[in-house]
């Protein structure tokens, strides 16, 4: 299911109770400066489009990435990390919905 997210994601996507991602930090919930809906995208375009978003942001800003498949949920955080950004959390909020929160380097 593709959802159009505004500047702030719905509370539900920040729910960590169903977390099944590969890593999760103890960082407090961060308000996203930007949110990108990539639920219908697959690799490598999930990372390509995440990177394009990050390029338009300022250092220290928070990007929330919504992903719709497990391959992307494992690849995007790794690729974002290799680019030097900080992956704050990876949360699985629904069976086919992951939320990756990144602080731009």
């Amino acid at each position: 299911m593709t959802t159009a997210f505004g500047a702030n994601a719905p509370e539900a996507v920040n729910n960590r109770e169903n977390w099944g991602g590969i890593r999760m930090s103890d960082q407090k919930e961060q308000k996203a400066d930007r949110t990108v809906d990539l639920l219908s995208e697959v690799c490598p375009y999930t990372f390509v489009k995440s990177k394009l978003e990050l390029e338009q942001m300022e250092t220290g800003q928070i990007l929330q990435i919504h992903l719709g498949n497990s391959e992307s949920a494992s690849n995007v955080p790794r690729s974002v990390d290799l680019e030097g950004h900080e992956v704050l959390s990876v949360d699985q909020t629904e069976p086919s919905h992951w939320v990756v929160t990144v602080r731009r380097a």
């Binding site: 390509v48 990177k51 390029e55 290799l82």
Partner: peptide, 12 residues
């Protein structure tokens, strides 16, 4: 996309 993926290249 294969250019954008490259570190140092990207969309910029």
């Amino acid at each position: 996309s294969r250019h954008i993926l490259l570190k140092g290249v990207g969309g910029t």
